[in-house]
């Protein structure tokens, strides 16, 4: 997946644990783990907005596009 989700970086900057973030965003720890490990297929805007609000950042701080990486599914 060419879209990288840099939640770990923001968690470290805000000194927050994954569990705390999951509670604030309203998703399960398992789903947050899916997001962090890059296995997610899609993110809802509502979830993205909740992440930005919890981490006090912009979507661009969490999401990064790397065109060189091929999508495993497309292969």
């Amino acid at each position: 997946m060419p879209i990288i989700v840099n939640v770990d970086v923001m968690l470290a900057k805000r000194k927050m644990s994954s569990g705390e973030l999951a509670d604030k965003v309203g998703i399960t720890a398992a789903n947050l783990s899916i997001l962090k490990t890059g296995k997610a297929k899609a993110v809802r805007f509502s979830t993205l907005a909740a992440l930005c609000k919890a981490l006090d950042c912009q979507p661009g701080d969490i999401l990064e596009y790397q065109p060189g990486e091929e999508d495993e599914d497309e292969q």
Binding site: N31, L32, I34, L35, K39, A40, A42, T47
Partner: peptide, 8 residues
């Protein structure tokens, strides 16, 4: 279903 499950 898999895509929906992987939509956070």
């Amino acid at each position: 279903k898999e895509e929906n499950e992987m939509t956070i």
